[in-house]
Simulated assay, not measured.
Amino acid sequence: MNFNFLSPVSDLVLAHNELLSQQALGRKLRIHSKQKGIPDLEGVSIALIGVLENRNDHNYIGEEFQLNEIRKAFYALFHGSWNTIIADLGDINKGESVEDTYFALKTTIAILIEKKIIPVIIGGTQDLTYANYRAYDALMPMVNIVNVDCKFNLGDSAKPIKNNSFVGKIILDQPYNLFNYATIGYQTYFNSQEEIDLMEKLYFEYYRLGQVSTNIALVEPVLRDANIVSIDLNSIKSAELSLNQKYSPNGFDGKEICAIARYAGISNKVSSFGIYEYKPSKDDEITSMLMAQMIWYFIEGVNYRVKDDDFIDENTYQKYITLVEDQELIFYKSIKTGRWWIEIPFLTEVNNKLKRHTLLSCMHQDYLDACNNKIPDRWYKAFQKNCI
C-alpha cells in the first residue's frame, strides 16, 4: 500500500507516550514511528490521520501548526471496553500546493476505506472535506455529507475554494456524487438569507443550534444516513475552547459535541470522520482534550455498531403502513435497536445511482406525525431531490 504521503508521529509524542500507564490508549495503538515505519493494518478498524494544511483559511497569515498536543491528550485517555483496533498513521504534511495536499488525503482515505478502515482526520482547515468527498469517487455512486457547523459554507463555486466556501465546489464539480448535504448546529446570523434560500431550494437539511440543543436525538437519523461527517470546531461555544480557538459565545457545549460524535460512530454508514479548524496556542490544553474526547466518543460509537437495517428476516423488524395525503408511507422498526426507517418507493431501479437510498433513517416521531396526516420533512426532501 502506498502511504508515502504520511510522516511519522513525532518522537516527542512517543516519548510522552512511554510515560503513560500500560492501560492508556496510547499504549494500545499501532503507531507510525520513524523507527518502525507504518504499522501492520491487519484487523485495524480505525486510523487517525493528521493533516497539516491550513492555507485555504480565509484569514490565513502563514502560521505553522502541529497536532502533538491533541495526540498527547488522546493517548492519555483510557481504553473503553472495546474490541476495536486503532492505528495512528501520523500526518500528511503540506504539499507543494493545496491541491497536492488534497491529492495525498484523497488517496490515503480511498486506500483505507477500501480496506474497511475508518479514517479519523484531524485538520487543518475544513475545505479538506472536499478532498475527503472526492476520495469516494470510485467507491460509491452517491454520498451523504453531514457538516457540524455554525455556517453552511456554500460560497461561490466560481471563486477559489476556501474553508468557508467549499460546499459549492462539492455540489457543482464533476462527477456529481452528492445526494444529501446536512448542516447540524447552524446559527442564522452567520448565514445570509441567500444561502438559507439555496439550502431550501436544493432540499438539503439544516438544523438550528437551538433545535439540536433542545433535543440532541434529533440529529441521530441524519447521522445514521451519513457517509462523511465533518465537524468544524467553530460550532463549539468559545467557553469550551482555548484562547486562540474562541469564535462565538453560542455553540455546542462539550457534552453535546461528544454526543454528536458518538451518534456518528454508531452509524453503520459513516466511513470517514473529520474534525477541522484546529488552531493551536500556548493555552491549548482545553481544545486538545475536547478533541481527544470527541475522537474517543466516535470510537466508542463504532465499537457499539449494530447491523439492523437489512430487513431480510421478518423476525427482526416490525412494519407499519400509514396513508398521508393519498401517499402510502411504509415504516420499519428494528426490534433489536428500536431504530426507525421510512421507505422511499419512488427511488427505484429507474435511477440506479439512488437505488441504495430506498430506506431513509427517521425517528419514532416521524411515524407518529404520519399517523396524524403530516408528511415527515426528511421524506419530503428526499422525494423532492429525486424530482429535480
Rank of each mutant, 00 (worst) to 15 (best):
E42V: 12
K319D: 07
L89G: 01
D127K: 01
I171A: 08
S334W: 05
K353H: 04
N4I: 05
L360M: 12
Q365S: 11
Y75C: 06
S157F: 13
G155A: 11
S242W: 05
I117F: 09
I170Q: 15
Y278V: 00
D253P: 04
L329D: 02
V9L: 03
K333V: 07
V13E: 01
L77E: 11
F65G: 10
K269W: 06
G274A: 07
P39S: 04
I286V: 14
Y176P: 01
F78Q: 12
N132A: 10
M1V: 03
E277S: 08
Y75N: 09
G123L: 09
L12I: 02
Y189I: 14
P8I: 14
Q327R: 03
G301N: 08
E314L: 08
N4E: 11
D377S: 10
G251K: 04
Q365C: 06
A110G: 08
N56T: 08
I161C: 03
Q245R: 10
P141Y: 08
Y130A: 12
T214I: 02
F179K: 08
L354F: 14
F179T: 04
D310S: 12
Y247F: 15
Y247N: 11
K106M: 11
I275Q: 00
P119V: 06
E325L: 06
D11Y: 00
I113R: 15
E69K: 02
L198Y: 03
G43H: 11
A182H: 01
Q211M: 08
L329R: 01
E314V: 05
M363R: 12
G274S: 11
K151F: 12
P345R: 00
N83G: 13
L172F: 15
A226P: 11
I85L: 05
F103D: 09
Y380L: 15
I46V: 15
E114M: 13
I86S: 04
G265Y: 07
S238A: 13
H79C: 11
T322H: 00
I342L: 07
F311G: 11
P39M: 10
N68V: 00
I85H: 02
W340D: 09
K355R: 12
Y278M: 01
P39T: 06
L198R: 07
G124L: 03
R134T: 10
N352T: 13
K269M: 03
S10H: 04
C387V: 13
H364R: 08
S242M: 05
